[in-house]
Write a protein that binds this DNA or RNA. Sequence first.
DNA 1: CCACAACTAAACACAA
DNA 2: TTTGTGTTTAGTTGTG
Length: 410
Amino acid sequence: MGPIIGMSPDKKTEIPGMQEERTGLRGVCGVGTLPEAECASSPLATSVDRTGGTEDEELTNLNWLHENLLQNFTLGGPEAQPSGSPLFDIEGDYGSNQGPSSSSSSSSHSRGRERESLKSKPPFSFSLLIYMAIEQSPSKSLPVKEIYGWILEHFPYFSNAPTGWKNSVRHNLSLNKCFRKVERSLGKANGKGSLWCVDPEYRPNLIQALKKQHFPAAHAFCTPPASPPSASSPPRHLFLQGCSFKESDIDAATAMMLLNSAPGHHVDPCNSDSPLDLSRPDSVLVSSDPKQDHNYSSVALQRCSSRSSSSSLSSLDEGACDRRQSRRAGSEGFHSDEDSDLWDERGIHQTSRRLPAIKWPAGKRARREIKPELDEELKEAAGSLLHLAGIRSCMEGSKRTVKSTKLNRK
DNA sequence: CCACAACTAAACACAA
DNA sequence: TTTGTGTTTAGTTGTG
């Protein structure tokens, strides 16, 4: 999936003078407002560790993930504070950990690069940005305005970017079949527009796109095991032992994403904040079978979905035509009982609070398949990611201990 | 060079 | 009428 990865900040995004000097770390440290701040309490929360990372790279996607997503997703929360906070001290420490010869200048240098990254266009496609925004919302659904806000908050680049990006966001929401419009009748009775949520069917695709974007090594989690996965099987993260911790950081974020997309977690497409239940077999996931692979990475899907030329994530846009047709056919308020039945059959749609009706185009419904075998893989992948993140968390804790010891000595 | 994905701009319609 | 939203089309750019 070259285009996504290719849209790195250092490509067409580094527009000199495009951005003014901003608050710098606002996008990084301002994540305390995230409703998912509780994520910081998980072992993943402390899994930002740059020890051993070779900071010689350019402003790559990995760095972007570190400087924005990872800190947003894993360090957000109570400990996420502006510069001067322990968090930021970690960042400074990060600079000093780059090597024995590192000095305070290297720390400031890394901060400067963070600032630069914030001034650069995110390496994520609009689809992924929207996805992240929606996934970060408590209700897993957001109006466009809040999607704007989320993007602005976490990617300050857009605050100074021309307003065309909003058009692109709307364009993506409209055209990308990964996103679904939700009736706003319930909840927010007022306000323009509808809520948008992520189609749970395509959430794994988005996750995979996200993984592919910043962490190609995550493929190891998506490759079928030599033997059927079992509880006694060694965690597949062992396959990644050669990976740097930086990549593991990304794994932590990916794990969170995976968990968000884990089976049972999309109990309701727009209210997936239900408890994670990995035991549920009712999910689709990255399939090892290209024929079954609905995912972003599926070459077959890319081929068959190439009809759509304008949609982001258009490899997922296979049903876009149907969607548009259904919309144009006057089925704007598409809400079939058939869909409800389908959801009921899968044991979902049974949340405590009633959710807005979702317009599920018929063309998409046919693609809803239950893949229990893939669920196992997802569970293992998520478990491995969490395991790895846990290891990293422990290492981070050790690192902090050593650091505090040094400080005490001083 | 080509196909494709992603981005961008623009226009239009609609509703608050 | 204004503004925001949603949709659609067309063109551009970068990558493989």
